[in-house]
């Protein structure tokens, strides 16, 4: 059995350590803002292709989003067709997407709808670049939050060359291009 004085000192140090741990925890909680999640700023994204390769998930939690409301519904779609496509049809040899994740549907002359199959999309951003170069830029990359595991530090954010990843409040987890005017105002 330890002498009483020693016991007391030990208890005191232990109490002090507990207060320290609690204090450190609370002082970091002071900054506790609403829950944050990762998202891509489509204005900054340069479609480098790292979203497809650097996510801790395979396939990546980053998917191509399509804002139909700003889409031109072009027949000659830069996001769907390879630049050297011989014909404007759904032939595999004409498609830009490496996983054929985009479906082209005829709506009315001369408009076509382009729909992205999220199960097939790997988030490589090849169509995004095509749509940016030739079209309205209605296709863009976003983190899909039902897939994202919200890592401590997003591995893609660390690898992103254009600083396009940022944390946004979980209540508004998407930076949709079709909402941009609303966001700015």
């Amino acid at each position: 059995m330890k002498p009483k004085g020693k016991r007391k000192r030990r208890d005191f140090v232990r109490g002090a350590a507990a207060v320290l741990v609690g204090g450190v925890a609370v002082s970091s909680l002071r900054s506790c803002s609403p829950k944050l999640v990762w998202q891509i700023d489509p204005e900054k994204c340069t479609q480098c292709g790292r979203c497809a390769t650097h996510c801790v998930l395979a396939p990546s939690a980053v998917k191509c989003f399509h804002s139909y409301s700003i889409c031109g519904y072009c027949d000659l779609c830069g996001g769907y067709l390879r630049p050297d496509a011989k014909k404007r049809n759904t032939g595999a040899e004409n498609q830009l997407c490496p996983t054929a994740a985009i479906t082209r549907t005829f709506i009315e002359n001369p408009y076509y709808q382009y729909k992205i199959d999220e199960d097939l999309c790997i988030g490589c951003g090849i169509c995004v670049e095509g749509c940016d170069v030739f079209g309205n830029g209605s296709m863009y990359l976003q983190v899909k939050h039902d897939l994202c595991v919200n890592c401590n530090e997003c591995a893609i954010a660390h690898a992103c060359p254009s600083d396009a990843f940022k944390r946004v409040p979980a209540s508004e987890p998407y930076l949709l291009k079709s909402d941009r005017e609303k966001r700015i105002s």
Binding site: Y68, E118, A170
Partner: peptide
């Protein structure tokens, strides 16, 4: 226009 599918984060 079809709506954009924006599922929220699951916690």
């Amino acid at each position: 226009h079809p709506a954009v599918h924006t599922p929220g984060p699951s916690n």
